[in-house]
Amino acid sequence: MNLFFIILLKVFPIYINVILGFLSSKYLKVQRESVATLLIYILGPIVVFSATLSVKIDFAVAFLPIFLFIFCSIIAFSALAIFKNHWNDPTGNILAFSAGTGNTGYFGIPLAIIFFPPWLADIYIFTVLASLLYESTTGFYVTAKGNFTVKEALKKMSRLPILYAFILGIALNLAGFEIPEVISSYTAQFKGAYGILGMMMLGMGLMGLKNSEGNFDIKFISITYFLKFIFWPLAILGVIYLDRTIFMLLNEDLYKVLFLFAIVPLAGNTVTLAVLLNAKPEKASLAVFLSTVVSVITIPLFIYLYGGF
């Protein structure tokens, strides 16, 4: 069990950012809407663009985000079809969004930096592009569809710069373009800022909870937690088993990347998009926050059971 407590100690400091977010919103009156806008329209595109250019893309590395984007999208559309009529508000749409992703960026990137060597952490960050692409396309669509028509949702989706940053980054990478070292050292700082502000958003989202009714939706929390903490790890372990025994496309290091992708808590952008689209942000904040608290135990436990990174 020593490994478990070592992992726990490594993970715990990340949660300080949640507390800082709550305090900054409560006492400094920092507006979460402004932070959400910064994350989606400025920091996100820069992180996506620079990460796309920093990785040497081969078949195995390229397979990870492609597979995960498809996998995330299938889960989201399936969840939307099953649960969209279970509530009389956009809760079903938020559930569909959260079912297809996790906090792979705000939470997962700091974890990858802690547990992986730099080259593998870069591959993880590249893989996180699957989540960012999902969140700005499929995820944004299933969320916005609760408040907007199909045409309006697609129109809003087309305005998200993360999508274009990803396409541009891939094109330049394949063309052999490299960011100058002076600029890359600058853009690298945005990875940390993205993780810090993303976790702070969880704390900021708690401000409206005590004065709002109906935020603790046991049905919503039960379904999302089952999908995140049971279905996702088991499904990815199944994928790893099939690849290890049949397909043999990946390697042990990439299996670790896949598994870390699967065990993070609910996505912080569940709150971000809920705020921007006014789709039950307080309910989303509570569910994401509680999943983050639960992950204090689940992440070290999952990594321990996996055998450690």
Rank of each mutant, 00 (worst) to 15 (best):
Y194F: 11
L132K: 07
I123G: 00
F140P: 12
T143M: 15
L133C: 01
K155A: 10
V182C: 00
A144H: 15
T138L: 04
I179G: 04
R159D: 14
G192M: 10
P118M: 13
A130D: 10
L120N: 02
L172I: 07
F190N: 04
E135K: 02
M157D: 02
K155P: 00
A130F: 11
S136N: 11
L132M: 08
T149S: 07
Y141S: 05
G146W: 08
T138R: 03
L129I: 15
K155V: 08
D122N: 12
T187K: 05
P180S: 09
S158K: 09
G146M: 04
Y141N: 03
P180K: 04
S136D: 13
S184V: 12
Y124K: 00
A144N: 12
L174N: 01
L172K: 04
K145T: 07
I179F: 07
V128K: 00
G146E: 09
A165T: 14
V150H: 13
L154D: 00
Q189D: 09
G139Y: 13
G146P: 14
V128F: 11
T137M: 13
D122S: 10
I183R: 06
G139K: 11
N173I: 05
S136I: 10
L160D: 05
Q189K: 11
I167F: 15
S184I: 12
L160T: 03
A144T: 10
V128D: 15
E152P: 06
L168N: 02
G146Y: 11
